[in-house]
Design a binder for these strands. Structure first.
Length: 272
DNA sequence: CTAATCACCTGAAGGC
DNA sequence: TGCCTTCAGGTGATTA
């Protein structure tokens, strides 16, 4: 479910509410949801900083880190008082704070994880620079792109060279840049790559402004859906006319994922 | 190195 | 109504 814009929305909401709070204890309700790989106990530590790298949420504690990935259906929310367990059938982990508040981790499909580690790198070793990292310049983007002998969709999705894009925003970015998802990276010239870089920044920024996209499961920390799904140009629009040219949007499996694109606007090119 | 296929899970939707 | 298949905002392991 959540890609960069959804995760960004959630951490912006959690930051003022949780920074400075001290953890009393963590209670996993589904054992796999909480992975404790740290020597030091999590209890008694205070959240000093909340940040994000790609789709990962990081709580920097005094001596260690909580690294959270929501995968497909994970949700985080804060309950300040008594909450009714009956309202949360997919509750997987609870983080209790000294002041009486509780962070709920709900996750229907049980793919999400909360890692407790001494070093965040233990979890993030395969994750590249965040799409919004100041070091993610066009030159950086293009130099990693032109070396890869893979399709452009696989490149954008991998998280290794640019972190934060998932299936929705990859398809939307490629449509905006008018690049076919199976276009080989090595065949994308500097000019076209710049259009893609700009498209990625634009698409992600607009999605953050719209508080993320909700297809079915995604909710922010207050339980609200996003609004960005109202602005999709290709995602979930198979069989509907392209907003540019009227050609029907196609759906095809690319890089293992259902991929939406306009066959006329997004042609595979030999070079450009 | 890259691509493809599972695996991990649950629930919704469509076909018959 | 019910059964079966397919699909889903993700990633990690394994196999060609």
């Amino acid at each position: 479910m959540p890609e960069l814009p959804e995760v960004e929305t959630i951490i912006r909401e959690l930051k003022p509410l949780l920074t400075g709070r001290t953890i009393k204890m963590v209670e996993p309700l589904w054992a796999k949801s909480f992975v404790d790989q740290a020597e030091r106990p999590v209890s008694g530590q205070t959240i000093r900083q909340i940040r994000r790298i790609g789709k990962y949420i990081l709580f920097d504690l005094d001596q260690s880190h909580l690294v959270i990935h929501l995968r497909m259906t994970g949700r985080l929310s804060i309950q300040n008082n008594q909450f009714d367990l009956n309202d949360h059938p997919h509750l997987r982990c609870l983080i209790y704070f000294e002041d009486g508040s509780v962070l709920l981790f709900e996750d229907t499909r049980k793919f999400g994880r909360i890692y407790h580690v001494e070093q965040a790198e233990q979890v993030l070793k395969e994750v590249g620079l965040d799409a919004f990292d100041p070091q993610m310049t066009f030159d950086y983007f293009y130099s990693s792109l032109k070396k890869r002998k893979m399709g452009i969709k696989a490149f954008l999705m991998s998280q290794k060279w640019i972190a934060g894009l998932g299936n929705i925003y990859t398809d939307e970015s490629l449509f905006r840049a008018k690049i076919h998802p199976e276009q080989l990276c090595t065949k994308i010239g500097r000019k076209k790559a710049k259009e893609l870089y700009d498209a990625v920044q634009y698409i992600l920024q607009k999605a953050v402004e719209n508080m993320g996209s909700t297809i079915s499961d995604y909710r922010d920390a207050y339980g609200n859906p996003g609004q960005n799904q109202l602005y999709f140009k290709v995602y979930k629009r198979a069989g509907q006319p392209c907003f540019n040219c009227g050609t029907l949007i196609e759906k095809k499996r690319v890089a293992g994922r259902g991929t939406h694109f306009c066959p006329k606007c997004q042609k595979i090119r030999g070079q450009e």
